[in-house]
Amino acid sequence: MTMTSTFDRPVRQYNFGTMSLLVFPATALLLAFLVLPTAVVVVLSFTDYELGMDGLRYIGLSNYSDMLADRVFWQSVRNTALYVALVVPGSIFTALAVALLIERRRALTRFYKVAFFLPVTATLVAMATVWEFILHPSIGLANHLLKVLGVDPVRFLSDPDWAIVSLAVIGIWQSIGFNMVLFLAGLSSIPKEIDEAAALDGAAGGIDRFLIVTWPLLGPTTLFVTITTAINAMRVFESVAVITQGGPNKATEVILYSIYLEAFQYFRTGYASALTVVFLLVTVSLIILQMRVADRKVHY
C-alpha cells in the first residue's frame, strides 16, 4: 500500500504540461539527431534523388531491386562478410591471449596496456603510411620476413586474393587494444575464490583453469566483445579509402565504401540511401541479438 502511494504521488503532482516540458529537451534532441536523419534516409531510398538536382520522384522499391541485381553490391557484401569473418575471431582470440598473458605479469601490465592500446588512439590515416611500408611488395618488412622463412613474396595490397586479408590484419591490429582492455576488465571481475576452488578441486594448470573458470565466466564479456567487434568490422572504411580505394579490381570494395562512392562520387543519393537502410537493418539486428542473448545468458 505504501509503495503504491509513493509511486502515485509524482503522477498526481505533475500534470501533463509539466511532464512534456521536462521530457522535451531529450525528445527534441533524439528527434533532431537520430530519428529525423534516419527517417530522411528511409524516405530518400524510395526516390531517385541525386545530390544537387532540383526535383525528386517516388520510384518505389526500384533502388532496392537495382541493388539486388547489382554485381558490385553482392561483391561488397561478400568482401565485408569475409573481412568480418577474419577480423572477429582474429581480434578476439589475440586480444584474449594478450589479456591472459598480461594479467599474470604484474610489473609490466601498465606498459603492455599502453602498447596494445596505442593503435586504438592512433589515427589510421596516419598509420596507413606505416602499413603501406610494411606491406610494400619489394621493400616491405612483411615480404622480408617471408623470404627469411623461405616463402615466395606476396603482393599484399595489389593481389586481389590478398588485399582483403591484408586489410583484415590491419583491422585486427587496430581493434586488439580495445578488446584486450575489455577482456582485462572481465578477467578482473572473476572472483579469486573460484580460481582457488578450482586449484583445490585439482585443476592442474592453465588449460584446466581456463576451461572450468576463465572461459565460462568470461562469457558475457566475450559476447559483448564479439558483437562490438563485428559491428565495427562491418563499418570498415578508413583503411579501404586510404590504402586500396576498393581495389584491386573491387577486391576490397566494402559496403561502407560503396555507399561513399554512390553518395559522394556519383551523387546517386537515393541509391546510397537504400544501401544505408540495408546496412542499418543488419547492424540493428546484431545489436538486438546481443541484447537477447545477454539477457538470457548473463544470469547463470
Partner: peptide
C-alpha cells in the same frame, strides 16, 4: 594444492 589432497569450503562457497 592439488598435490596435498585437501578439500576446502570457502566462506562464500565459491561454487562455479
Amino acid at each position: 594444492p592439488r598435490a596435498r589432497d585437501v578439500a576446502m569450503v570457502f566462506q562464500n562457497y565459491a561454487l562455479y
